[in-house]
Design a protein around this nucleic acid. Sequence first.
DNA 1: AGACTGGCAGCAATCGATTACACCTGCAAT
DNA 2: ATTGCAGGTGTAATCGATTGCTGCCAGTCT
Lengths: 324, 324
Amino acid sequence: MATIQDVAAHAGVSTATVSRVMNGAKVSEDLAVLVRHSASELKFVPNRTARSLRRQNSEVIALIIPDIENPFFTSLARGVEDRAQEAGFSVVLCNTDEDVVKEERYIGVAIAENVAGVILAAASSRSDLSRLVAQRRPVVAVDRVPHGYDVDAVTFSDADGGAEAATSLFDRGYTRVGCITGPEDVETARLREEGWRRVAAERGLEGLDELVRFADYRVNGGAQAMKELLDSPEPPDAVVVTNNLMGIGAVQTLLAAGLSLQQFGVAVFGDFPFAPLAPTGVSVVHLPARQLGVTAADLLLKRIGGETGPGRRVVLKNEPFHRE
Amino acid sequence: MATIQDVAAHAGVSTATVSRVMNGAKVSEDLAVLVRHSASELKFVPNRTARSLRRQNSEVIALIIPDIENPFFTSLARGVEDRAQEAGFSVVLCNTDEDVVKEERYIGVAIAENVAGVILAAASSRSDLSRLVAQRRPVVAVDRVPHGYDVDAVTFSDADGGAEAATSLFDRGYTRVGCITGPEDVETARLREEGWRRVAAERGLEGLDELVRFADYRVNGGAQAMKELLDSPEPPDAVVVTNNLMGIGAVQTLLAAGLSLQQFGVAVFGDFPFAPLAPTGVSVVHLPARQLGVTAADLLLKRIGGETGPGRRVVLKNEPFHRE
DNA sequence: AGACTGGCAGCAATCGATTACACCTGCAAT
DNA sequence: ATTGCAGGTGTAATCGATTGCTGCCAGTCT
């Protein structure tokens, strides 16, 4: 592999000059031409490791997400990637599997690799950002925001979404609306449930705790929770499900139990993946995941560009609608 | 950020000793204890950039895939990641968007970043691996293998799969079986179509070219191709679709046209994502994507470990079945 | 003519960890 | 007592690119 030394020797100049040519600093045009010629002659590719060591940064953004198999997060990733790409950054995707330990490890890797910044969809509201913050490394929290840190964040209006989802079900005539939500220590799960709870209470529903199930944001968890609700003494006649995968599980259970989506109402957060094949008759709180990624990348790039100041929080509105 | 110098000073030893402790070389136990204590005291994390520069390698594997929003590739990624994780490697995911230019760029990044190895699902059979090969950097091709390079490869038995898919449709009683396949320069697309073509010819079908459509391996492409086939002078009564996303598009078009999956037979490569909601009555050639990833990672890790020799080719069998 | 300025190029330090080599100590063999 | 050896530690070179500082030269000003 050709190094900057080789190029310098080949062109008969110093390494400093080569470096300046490669980085657009002031160099007389004739030398620049000479250097560029030598560089392409030798197929010179600057070694990023060396550059990163010297400059104490890199052109890589780490994107840490809890579940790479959830289309919500892959859309998010696309958004981040597209924006980062435009700005000349590469994106490293890390999958934590909703596991705080893996997350911790990936944060360590990000630091040790000197990434330019981190976009994190936290595995838990107690995720530990202290090392990143202590390093003053740009961080943007997305979707879920760990407590106690002053970092930029982009989220949805989760509580409102939960309320709207519940409202849409009541308005469609269901009277006993339950809720299947995610792990108790995940912020989106808590907030969305809170929204549902508020509306359910307003509508005079009692014994709300009997109507809630906490699951794991995955298909099987949703299916299981739905089973439990159906088998409970006073089962609901409709349910708010706080993420897409659990929604699939819940619908699966319902259909398997011989219920139609008219008999039993379902409102779900996040689009069903591959909508063309999705069942009809489900209320969907549309979450613009890609937009979330784009926004987060914008924020992060600004910070990387040197912007300072306290953490900003952007809340994206989610739009509920009823799919026919 | 604490460096090895800080730790050395704090422990009253040389940096060499600290390095040796961190890397398990020979150091007396008492000094080792001292060093470990200082290291944790100062929260020392070895800088991977510096290590990588010095050692001329890193603990990162690059996984380059054409479409991060295709569940097939995210499963693959999971397989790679799980295995890499076990071996202490991190996985960097790069999305080429089926674009040879983006792919080229990511290969450049991989080289410049000194990754330990690359797993590549090529955007095209003409993808350029020469830089990787010239560097003697470990490479494993998955799913799709660019022509003309002697590298390890893991693929499916695509032609056989195509034949089996076609056979299953004929055996179910359909007589005019068409094919919707991917871009002409993608190997899997060509081979699967070839398998279909062989069987279709055996069954006495003529004018096969009228029954084939080349699309882009995406949902809309599949839908469009299906429309074209339905509108053709002599439309087929069944179709082999060579990837999962196009399968969704095709089914969508069929249902929209008022056809049932009994009237019009469909066989598809790769599982419908989120099977619980998938339509029934489709023949599926099951592709063990995760297994593909695990196998590729194994091969790559062996190469990284120093194994030499000519490229090996592993062909995973795919199992067709009919979903009821 | 002499002083000064600005533009450009090169030298060498630097980033942080690894490691070849030198060196030291203590102990055993001669 | 001297030599040899082994195990452990330190010194300093090294990886490749970036960049602060210095120096040179030509052109301008007085």
